[in-house]
Design a protein around this nucleic acid. Structure first.
Lengths: 208, 208
DNA sequence: CTAACTATGTTATTGTTGCTAACATATGTT
DNA sequence: AACATATGTTAGCAACAATAACATAGTTAG
């Protein structure tokens, strides 16, 4: 009886519904795409009724926005962690960032798409952009080191942008199945390395 | 009376409902995105009831697939037309193709996204891929001319792929509002020209 | 010419979805 | 103990994609 009472108490107030909804939405997003799962599906996974999520998220868009923000943060952390395994400010550390980027896209394509889509996040895009800028600055700092620039100067942003463009394009081509169109096996790592070498200006910093 | 009779006849059997639905869907797609318009909206524009479209398209996905196919065809035609205004097989004609590509993405972002998305076209992706290959071959042929290759050899596909990657990435960054993040004004035409020069191997054909 | 067939339209209906309203219960504060 | 707040429930709506049953126009065969 006492146990039942406690169970009922726990059953009513969920404890960490917000967190579990985010987790459920993240999994469902990757498995079925943003339109392939319903709020009810997420509710069933979290074990609550269909109206419960709206105490924590304004709507489905809002829930997915948080999933996207989390994705951008994880991407930034992964890029930093991977770059730090090479000598900083080198072609190697920079292309390592690119590899992490494309790997993320391939591993979590739906999240990746959502992270960079402007639509679907009508109201609160600015939050997403802010997290995105933070993650992008990982690349910017690395390129600044490569160029021997003391700060994120325009020289740095101009050098970094084509690299972003390249790995971004490679990511989308990969997740949309366009790497099999090309009649030769695309080696992603090699593509990134070559593109990095060709698109970056020669290093003027201390490192060659 | 006779006129009324004719009008009624014309009102019932629409004449070119399929075409008008495609046109309506294309317009609605660009204005509101794929999830921002309903079948009913398209029906109202075409002046028919909500069940009429299902005589011509299996479902909404199917309707949008046809819109995407049309977009790929128009892109291919535009690339060919624009490349032909320059000396064939040159950096100029090749980067012209890239400009058309990015311009299309900017002008019709939702169609562009749909053209390259794998999801949303579950059943009949192969049709889309076929049209896509035909459009891609415009670039392949131009690069073959540049390299002096008689055919679409592996040398050609290897040289062309990084170019596609670059303009594809630039397109997505542009339509997702990422060109304003960079603290310097991105000149799209210049970006494409520079990237083409750097990513292409030196010309071995007759043209320099 | 007309009868049957096919193509293409209509109205009515269904099941699902995102979301809200009204209500219930737990937690925290005074 | 009483009240306020946060967080859950059930019931239900309007919009949606899609289907079923029916209606009408064009087309073809006898």
């Amino acid at each position: 009886m006492a146990e039942t009472k406690i169970k009922k108490k726990r059953a009513y107030h969920h404890g960490d519904l917000r967190g579990q909804l985010l987790s459920a939405a993240g999994n469902l997003l990757e498995e079925h795409g943003p339109d392939g799962f319903s709020m009810s599906d997420a509710c069933r996974l979290a074990g609550v009724s269909t109206a419960a999520p709206y105490r924590h998220f304004a709507n489905k868009q809002d829930l997915l926005l948080e999933v996207a923000k989390d994705g951008l943060q994880r991407l930034g952390a992964a890029m930093e962690a991977n770059a730090s395994q090479y000598e900083r400010g080198t072609i190697q550390s920079i292309s390592a960032i690119g590899r992490v980027y494309v790997d993320f896209a391939i591993r979590e394509p739906h999240t990746f798409r959502l992270m960079f889509s402007t639509r679907s996040h009508s109201g609160r895009i600015e939050e997403l952009r802010e997290v995105g800028r933070a993650s992008y600055s990982v690349l910017l700092r690395e390129v600044a080191r490569y160029l021997g620039e003391p700060d994120i100067t325009e020289t740095v942003t101009r050098a970094a942008f084509p690299l972003w463009t390249q790995v971004h394009g490679l990511s989308f081509l990969a997740i949309d199945g366009k790497l099999e169109v090309t009649s030769f096996p695309v080696d992603i790592d090699e593509s990134i390395l070559i593109a990095t070498e060709r698109l970056l200006p020669p290093a003027t910093g201390t490192k060659a």
